[in-house]
């Protein structure tokens, strides 16, 4: 299994734990994955607010770079993933725009035909690798650990390619495969407010707070995410959020690949638990029930 890899700006910055653990999990599963050369920012919401066509050009360039390699493109950041897929869809649906963009790509010697498939790691792990293979590699099952899988808004909207947008199960299934107990709650795809936690705290921190509160209410020990911004919002802003929601206890928030890396028996270099403000290992040590030697 070979893929091209689009990290996006967050995975090189505050989300580096996600990148490291994701690449480590790929290595453990013998997935060959190579970062795109000279990729550019996907634009996120902010760029698209300014210039529509150039935003399309940004993402189309990344898709064209991937097309040159001929492999599926994996984008772990949910926002990048959502934007790349939306771009691909737009280029198909509105050929007159597509032609303008292709003219721009042409100038840099890039070709775009739209045959690159954009994938999310959840999709790759559940569908290409398969839950059985994941289960095989588990050395430290997270038995007894209650995990709230938070999908966020861009993995499954507006285009859902690999899971049910109303009732997603891929991350829950993965967490179950590594021994954890998924927590059911109704807010799995409710927006965490993206950049508003920083720019408009009254709005953003309220929205993120509602999510944390409900997950804790339903018994979650750890919150698991598939997007670096969701992870950032739910973890780093916990203290100011607690001013609005005093009932919230500190709860660790990790990327799902970090837990998979831990379950695979990989070390701190790969799991990156130290890159968190709310301690992770402590909770794992407290909640995971030790399994008898030799048993699974």
């Amino acid at each position: 299994m070979k893929y091209s890899y689009f990290p996006g700006c967050s995975l090189k910055g505050t989300g580096k734990a996600y990148e490291k653990s994701f690449l480590a999990v790929c290595k453990a599963l013998n997935i060959e994955i190579n970062e795109l050369d000279n990729w550019n920012c996907c634009g996120a919401t902010a760029y698209m607010s300014v210039d529509e066509m150039k935003a399309l050009g940004l993402s189309a360039r990344n898709l064209a770079l991937a097309e040159a390699r001929g492999l599926d493109l994996v984008a772990p950041c949910a926002a990048c993933y959502g934007i790349l897929i939306h771009t691909w869809d737009d280029m198909e649906k509105y050929p007159q725009r597509g032609d303008q963009v292709k003219a721009g790509l042409d100038k840099a010697g890039l070709k775009y035909t739209g045959k690159v498939k954009v994938r999310h790691p959840l999709d790759v792990l559940c569908n290409d690798v398969g839950l059985d293979k994941i289960k095989e590699k588990v050395k430290r099952p997270l038995t007894g650990l209650k995990l709230a899988s938070y999908y966020g808004c861009r993995i499954l909207r507006p285009i859902a390619t690999f899971d049910n947008p109303e009732n997603p199960r891929s991350m829950d299934d993965l967490m179950e495969a590594i021994g954890g107990t998924p927590v059911e709650y109704p807010l799995k795809t409710k927006c965490c407010s993206a950049s508003h936690t920083g720019t408009l705290p009254e709005v953003g921190q309220q929205m993120s707070g509602i999510l944390i509160r409900e997950m804790e209410k339903r018994g979650a020990d750890i919150i698991v995410t598939g997007c670096p911004l969701c992870q950032f919002n739910l973890e780093v802003f916990q203290e100011p959020i607690r001013k609005r929601f005093p009932e919230i206890r500190p709860i660790p928030v990790v990327s799902f690949t970090q837990l998979i890396a831990y379950a695979f028996g990989l070390g701190e270099n790969e799991c990156c638990f130290k890159n968190h403000t709310v301690p992770v290992q402590k909770v794992i040590d407290e909640k995971v029930k030790p399994v008898a030697a030799g048993a699974r």
Partner: peptide, 16 residues
């Protein structure tokens, strides 16, 4: 390489 791509793509509706 990015700037050359973007230089010919223009939005009728956008731009700072």
């Amino acid at each position: 390489e990015l700037q050359s791509v973007l230089s010919v793509i223009n939005s009728p509706n956008g731009g700072v």
